[in-house]
């Protein structure tokens, strides 16, 4: 479904964030991306929907080359790839429902949506998505009135509005406490198992990886160190990924 070939990214100032990374993601998979902070996880996820322009390499999405796509094609590709962020990235002064409806922007008529006019079906769908993550009663509050866990659920609802084939989750639970972290991960799992949406999720904690991921890939300093089931990450692999002095927690 998604094929990443020899992907490299060099930022201005010669910082090499990704070095020749290649892997594939299969339909319906829950794939975890692990690695230290600054190992290139965020860059990798953002290269896939070209929020960051890759320097070299190819990304094939259902056979189509993302790196060579025109603006119109990119719009069609992006709307099929939902994204969830570590800091939720909600528009805090807008209402929850507006934030969720923003997920439809890739589908609706640009002029109409600029006037904040959405089809009735989209509004119903937004409420249904909020219901699914259990916060339909908060729909008309301002986004910044919600707690962190609730905000991330809005983020997931927004991604689900895109009717995505895949969700990119960039450390979705890193700014939440462990209990909330599990509840958010369970939503992602539910989306993955029930709706068959492929999930590509970067994570910090190995126990979360073991618990939720079908497969894991690991990055260290922009280089792909590991690709396989989480159960294969033994102590030796762990030190390869996280460095010699690392100790396992959790």
């Amino acid at each position: 479904m998604l094929e990443v070939k020899n992907l490299s990214k060099v930022y201005d100032g010669d910082v090499q964030a990704l070095k020749n990374v290649s892997f594939t993601v299969n339909q319906g998979e829950f794939l975890a991306v692990i690695g230290l902070s600054g190992s290139g996880k965020s860059t990798l996820l953002r290269c896939i929907n070209r929020l960051i322009e890759p320097t070299e390499g190819q990304i094939l999405w259902k056979g189509q080359d993302v790196t060579a796509a025109s603006q119109d094609e990119m719009r069609r590709i992006r709307r099929k790839i939902g994204m969830v962020f570590q800091h939720f990235n909600l528009v805090s002064r807008s209402r929850v429902i507006t934030n969720v409806l923003a997920g439809r922007l890739g589908y609706v008529n640009p002029m109409m949506s600029a006037l904040n006019l959405f089809p009735k079906s989209d509004i119903e769908m937004a409420l249904a998505q909020l219901d699914r993550v259990g916060i339909m009663n908060q729909a008309y509050k301002r986004a910044d009135e919600l707690s962190g866990g609730q905000q991330q659920r809005v983020g997931i609802a927004r991604a689900m509005m895109q009717e995505p084939a895949m969700i990119l989750a960039d450390e979705p639970v890193a700014s939440l406490d462990p209990v909330l972290a599990h509840s958010i991960m369970q939503y992602l799992e539910k989306i993955n198992k029930e709706s068959g949406v492929t999930v590509l999720c970067s994570l910090h904690f190995l126990d979360l990886v073991h618990r939720y991921a079908d497969r894991a890939i690991a990055l260290n300093d922009g280089v792909l160190m590991f690709d396989g089931p989480p159960s294969e990450i033994d102590d030796e692999k762990f030190r390869e990924i996280y460095g010699k002095d690392a100790e396992r927690v959790g």
């Binding site: 929020l51 590709i77 939902g82 994204m83 923003a102 922007l105 890739g106 927004r158 895109q162 990119l168």
Partner: peptide, 8 residues
């Protein structure tokens, strides 16, 4: 970034 990612 989030709005761009939706295909807007």
């Amino acid at each position: 970034e989030a709005i761009q990612a939706t295909g807007a």
